[in-house]
Amino acid sequence: MDWVLIVFVLFKGLVFATGMYFAIKWHYDREKKWADRRALLGMGAKLVAVFLLLLLVLLILTFGLARTLGMDLSLP
């Protein structure tokens, strides 16, 4: 019965070690790929555009929900 615990711990260690190896490799490869400044600026512009789009959608949904609930949204 003791061998089951040993096998499970070894399997868990192997899974974690494999995951750590691929995580480090992925980050290293990703950093090499992003070394180009132009690609980095393009990615930043895309992230800003997605953030602003999501902010606009959240604003529309918030005001839509407020009107559905009957809240007065007019300025004094």
Rank of each mutant, 00 (worst) to 15 (best):
H27M: 14
W26P: 01
T18W: 12
W26R: 08
T62I: 08
K32S: 03
S74P: 06
G13N: 08
L52T: 11
I60R: 05
V7W: 00
V7Y: 00
A23K: 09
A66R: 07
V48N: 10
L73S: 00
A35I: 09
F16W: 13
V48L: 13
A39P: 01
I6M: 09
L40M: 11
V57N: 02
L56H: 03
A66E: 08
V4P: 01
W26M: 11
R37C: 07
I60G: 02
R67H: 08
P76V: 00
I6C: 08
L10V: 05
L54W: 05
D72W: 09
L73P: 00
V15R: 06
L41V: 11
V57R: 01
A49K: 14
H27W: 12
R38G: 14
F63C: 04
K46Y: 10
L47Q: 14
F11T: 06
L56Y: 03
A23C: 09
T68S: 12
A45C: 09
K25M: 05
G44A: 10
T18A: 15
D2W: 10
L65E: 04
F22P: 00
L75V: 04
L61P: 03
A66M: 08
M1V: 09
G44H: 09
V15M: 07
P76L: 02
M71W: 15
V15C: 10
V15A: 09
G42V: 03
L69A: 08
F8H: 00
V50C: 10
W34M: 15
L75E: 12
